[in-house]
Simulated assay, not measured.
Amino acid sequence: MRLSRSAKVVLGIVSGLVLLFIYTPLMLVVVNSFNADRTFGWPPKGFTLEWWGKAFDSPGVRDAVVSSVWVAVVATIISLVLGTLLAMSLQRYKFFGRDIISLLVILPIALPGVVTGIALNNMFTTILGVPLSLWTVVIAHATFCMVTVFNNVIARLRRTSAGLEEASADLGAGVFTTFGLVTFPQLRSALLAGGLLAFALSFDEIIVTTFTIGAGETTLPIWILQNLFRPNQAPVVNVVAVVLIVVSIVPIWLAQRLSGDSVGVSGARVKAD
């Protein structure tokens, strides 16, 4: 499909306006993290690194960062295991109810965060009688983070022939040997991309975390919410928000590059065949 020159110009202008609308507020947060004016007057009267120094010296911020990283890492590991197993079982085997299970696996990421948070809170506190803690946050995050891994792995499996796995089994290799030497190398980039997306999704999650975190514990997004309207903490909040932006952008960018490279490799392989 070819577009006329005028259509390209209109689409370019519209795209530019949309991106400007989305990213201008984020750029204001970045600028205000260096703004010497505590009230964030515009234009900035000067730039300073004072707020960055206070953010790095704040015990509350450090503890929140450590908690967020720990939750995101553990939730990502759980998501990689469960998402991969689910994708392989649903793609490689045919059984009754497979489509329903596939829908149920994807559903958590489509549900509103408030609904998921309330449901998990009721399950932990009412049904299981488990006290809320960072572990309950990990379990809660894994329920929707594994969807990103599942989607990446099942998409790769659909483009990968099962013939190599069958040949490995015919040659006497066991299930784990076949997975380690045949299946895993084909899924490696999809797993890495899904894991990066899961990490980014967990690191900045706030709604589900609010309903499943224990008293006295905090993550970085929760810390931002608690200190957002405190005048003395407002400049530091901007710094923490910039850190969240960077931590979110880098994994997503890497995942996009990995997904793009894998598609290109798959396309070249199909063309060569």
Rank of each mutant, 00 (worst) to 15 (best):
F40C: 00
V114M: 10
N122S: 14
I101G: 00
S266M: 14
L103F: 14
N232E: 15
L196C: 12
A155E: 03
L120A: 08
F124P: 02
T48D: 09
S89A: 15
N152Q: 15
I206K: 01
A215G: 00
F56I: 14
G117M: 09
L17E: 01
V175A: 09
A190Q: 10
F34P: 02
V182M: 08
R5V: 04
I252W: 03
A140L: 07
V138P: 03
L192T: 05
K8L: 14
S68H: 12
V138I: 15
G267E: 14
V69C: 06
F150A: 00
L28E: 08
A200L: 09
G264R: 15
G97I: 11
V137G: 01
N232Q: 14
G60D: 12
L107V: 13
S33Y: 11
L254T: 01
A193V: 06
R62Q: 11
P44W: 10
V18W: 13
V65T: 07
G172M: 09
L80G: 04
A7F: 07
I100A: 14
A142T: 12
G264S: 11
I101K: 02
N227I: 00
V73M: 04
V14D: 02
A234N: 07
P59N: 10
F21H: 02
T209V: 13
V71K: 09
W70N: 01
A272C: 02
K54N: 11
L85M: 14
L171W: 08
R2C: 00
F95Y: 14
V73E: 03
L181A: 09
A162D: 08
I213S: 02
V265E: 13
S133Y: 13
L49G: 11
E50D: 10
A169R: 15
A241K: 07
L254Y: 13
N232R: 10
A200C: 09
L19N: 02
L86V: 09
T125D: 04
L254W: 12
V71R: 10
E50R: 14
I213N: 03
V208I: 14
L228R: 07
L90K: 01
L192M: 13
A75S: 14
G180H: 10
T136R: 06
V61D: 04
V175G: 02
I22V: 15
F229M: 03
L254K: 04
V138Y: 11
T24D: 01
A140Y: 11
G267R: 15
S259V: 10
G53C: 07
V61K: 07
R98M: 06
W223G: 00
L201E: 05
V114P: 03
G264Y: 12
A72L: 06
T126E: 14
L225H: 03
E217R: 10
G41W: 07
P44H: 10
I139V: 15
V114K: 02
P112E: 10
V147N: 06
W42V: 03
V14K: 01
